[in-house]
Design a binder for these strands. Sequence first.
DNA 1: AATGAATGAGAGTTCATTCAT
DNA 2: GATGAATGAACTCTCATTCAT
Lengths: 200, 200, 200, 200
Amino acid sequence: MVRTETRAAYREAILDAATRVFGRLGFQDAKMADIAAEAGVAAGTVYNYFKNKEEVFRSILQRTHELVYQRILVHQQLADPIERMRASTREAFDFLEEHGALFLLYVSIGGGFDWAQKRIEQALIDENHARYFALSQATLRDAVERGLLRSDLSIERLAVLLSGLTDATIFSWVRTGCPPGLRTQADPLIDFFLHGAKAP
Amino acid sequence: MVRTETRAAYREAILDAATRVFGRLGFQDAKMADIAAEAGVAAGTVYNYFKNKEEVFRSILQRTHELVYQRILVHQQLADPIERMRASTREAFDFLEEHGALFLLYVSIGGGFDWAQKRIEQALIDENHARYFALSQATLRDAVERGLLRSDLSIERLAVLLSGLTDATIFSWVRTGCPPGLRTQADPLIDFFLHGAKAP
Amino acid sequence: MVRTETRAAYREAILDAATRVFGRLGFQDAKMADIAAEAGVAAGTVYNYFKNKEEVFRSILQRTHELVYQRILVHQQLADPIERMRASTREAFDFLEEHGALFLLYVSIGGGFDWAQKRIEQALIDENHARYFALSQATLRDAVERGLLRSDLSIERLAVLLSGLTDATIFSWVRTGCPPGLRTQADPLIDFFLHGAKAP
Amino acid sequence: MVRTETRAAYREAILDAATRVFGRLGFQDAKMADIAAEAGVAAGTVYNYFKNKEEVFRSILQRTHELVYQRILVHQQLADPIERMRASTREAFDFLEEHGALFLLYVSIGGGFDWAQKRIEQALIDENHARYFALSQATLRDAVERGLLRSDLSIERLAVLLSGLTDATIFSWVRTGCPPGLRTQADPLIDFFLHGAKAP
DNA sequence: AATGAATGAGAGTTCATTCAT
DNA sequence: GATGAATGAACTCTCATTCAT
């Protein structure tokens, strides 16, 4: 029992370290030695927990995805689809603020374009992305059916545009050094999604 | 004179080849040997034109940026800022359709998140990105001042959101295999930017 | 006493396992983890019984040698040296058929040319080999002195040639998949040793 | 043309070096760095000529085999099969004396039992071995048909026994430090093959 | 004494860059 | 200036051995 806990703790520590290192350097530049050092273990130890560098990366993706997904899932019970959109966006932004290694989240949320990842596990990324997208699309469909959103654009197109606004906001936030307060941008973002930029 | 032209032609040929190879494989996986082979020259020749791999990449970025920038610049004379936005977006989409190696354009246009680039020349990317952004912001400012766009969002915020919509559209287009007709999405995109998703 | 027996039992179990694993994979490819797993003990346990991988190997060699040597020794009491040769060869072939891990026997008997062994303990191999050889030479000397064998070849040379015939027979047997009946080749082999290939 | 020659020379130099190193240390213990150093080139250079360590090994095998095979082939025109056997054996022994790296010859001639080789390219080894064996068997068959050899043993069995005598002689020679004069043992060996050890 | 995870030295291989031709 | 082979630093991964429990 103790052993199992210790193993799990080691695993988590390595994933945490790897998350920091990948976030800092990207997949290619991150060396296994860096990850091991950051985790405070020997190089070989990492290989007792993960088959290779790719699996470390994949595991981070999966772990992060699961974490965010669960947190967003909670809000899907809200009756009003617009409220659901607002809550989900706030939740995602909250998560980003809490975790330094946003790069990974971004990636797991879907839009990432790092060629390294592409090579590694596009399938996994796509699958995770698809799960988020499915959630988003369900909400949008609900909204369209209730007459809350225009119906001349496909659900998928709406989802793409919404994620575009979200991603751009995140990028911009990262670019400006991750200042506190990202979550406050969630509601204006949804408002913009609804009403656009036209002067009233 | 001939010599100069020959040199220039070699340089262009190498950049063309490198664009294709980087577009196909990404920065890390693209080997100098691949680029040389694609260009039909010997490996060493590349080094007669570029100091190293990074400079090849940087040069592509710069060249592409210049190309797109000039094409977009043409439309800045249009009196109506909304029309300017439409024309610029169409122009960017056209360029993407014409050139297979869209990845690079996208990247040079700005939102890219490839870690390789980050390492290499974020400064350059940012600078290029800033030039586009300046263009975009000038148009948006004009529109706001004419009362065509809401004034409760900062010009910069508007620019970020607009680029988000554009980028998401491009990503989605790439993801679906670059089907013909990207340019037809330019006007609906601007419409969405103006009016949002709300049902009328 | 019990303790001692337990220790001995562990030791034997590990050697048995190691014999199988070395036989299957050779020295280099056999991993200590494989041996431990095959023996049903933890990796560390092996090191409670043997200093290192080489000692495990050496111990197998020694144990196997001892076993075979004792079995062959029994027949040395036979009065007729030719009969002694026949009986010894049969005994060796029997042993090979009984034990799957023939490779090791062969090796310990002497002619092996595995570079791994060479590196490890050529001295030991040579010593064991010398013991067999001494037995063989004693018999041959006896035969020569009794006028049963030609005396124009040195005893050592005769021993070398005899072992060559034996080894070739074993190799050929292994190469053809160790079909049953190796022992029946012992007598024809000795006959050939005596009379050669010439037509009568 | 010069280039081609240079390339070939490099290739040969590396193979020569590798032959020495493999002969000295065996496959596993020979490091690519050792081979490169012995050849007086950089580590990477070896990889410009051979895909990997295994291919270096395989190439040596093939080259040596070809060399020896051609030399033995010359004597196949001799009318008397017994003379053919004598000449072939002498040729093989000559080759061994000329080349320090006998290990390889031995291996390529066939009886080798190095586990490393087994893993690597047993197929190739077997194929080469089969070529020698075919030669040997043809000669033996000829001799049997002419009534020169006993016909109660299969051709294959005769070939096995002959190679056993040869190998044992080589082993013994190597074991005693490769003293000059191996070739003088060829004729007595064939004599022994013909008449055996029985006193006349 | 058994365990099994941590260790870390070491090897094969890649590839950007250099340089003699 | 083009060539293309040589270079060698650097990185991932393996596994014999150690050691805390």
